[in-house]
Simulated scan of single mutants.
Amino acid sequence: MKLGKIFDRPRQTDKTPVLPTMTTNVTWLAALGSRLTAVGLAVEAGPGGLIVRNLDTPSLADTIKCRRRPDDGDRFWFFTSWNEAIAQVEELDEAVLTVVGYLKYDIPAVRNK
């Protein structure tokens, strides 16, 4: 028996397996949340996105969203609650520094990187 008869080539109608990758906005927000928590910000998941607070000044807070950006090839980006682009999701360090910067939070661990 030839293997060609048992295993054939994939067809266009065959379903492509869904592999676990960081391609959803929830996954990217979770990754950002972990990094922001690591540098000392209060983070919680909310219905509208990731709620980030300055622990010393709780009035300094924002809800960060993650969505596709049509003018950048539909890549995922992080956005502020006022729709200001923060960074592409692949640029987690840049996103952390930006959020820390506009929340006016002096974090030595971030400064000394």
Rank of each mutant, 00 (worst) to 15 (best):
F76R: 14
E90L: 04
G101A: 13
D62P: 12
D106W: 05
N54Q: 10
D71Y: 08
A95W: 00
E84M: 09
D56N: 15
I86C: 03
N54H: 15
L97E: 12
V99D: 07
P70M: 02
R69I: 01
S81E: 05
L97R: 14
N54S: 10
V89N: 07
L97T: 11
D71K: 14
V52N: 11
A85E: 06
T98H: 02
L103N: 02
A95T: 05
A85S: 11
L103S: 04
C66Y: 00
N54G: 10
R69P: 02
R68Q: 13
G49D: 04
A87T: 06
R75V: 01
P47N: 11
P47Q: 09
T80E: 05
F78N: 01
D71T: 15
L60P: 03
E91A: 13
T57K: 15
E90K: 06
S81T: 01
E94T: 09
W82T: 15
G46R: 15
P58S: 08
L60Q: 14
T80V: 08
E91N: 15
G46V: 08
T80A: 11
L92Y: 00
L50A: 05
E90N: 11
S59C: 08
T63I: 11
G73N: 07
T98E: 01
I51P: 05
L97F: 09
L55F: 00
G49E: 04
L60V: 08
V99G: 07
K104H: 09
L92T: 00
E94W: 00
S81A: 09
P47I: 03
T63K: 13
N54P: 12
A85F: 00
D74Q: 13
V96N: 00
E91Y: 08
W82Y: 07
T57I: 12
E94D: 11
L92K: 00
V96G: 01
P47S: 12
R67N: 10
D71S: 15
D106H: 12
L97P: 04
K65H: 01
T57Q: 12
W82C: 13
W82V: 14
P70F: 01
P58V: 08
I64R: 12
K65I: 00
T80M: 07
D74N: 15
D62T: 15
S59P: 05
P70C: 01
W77I: 03
L103A: 03
V89Y: 04
V52C: 14
F79T: 06
K104M: 07
P58T: 07
P70Q: 02
K65P: 00
L103M: 02
D106Q: 14
L50I: 06
D62E: 13
Y102E: 02
R69C: 09
S59Y: 05
D106V: 13
T57M: 09
N83M: 11
F76N: 15
R67L: 06
L50R: 04
L60W: 06
D72I: 08
T63F: 03
V89A: 14
L60A: 14
K65N: 00
L50Y: 00
N54D: 14
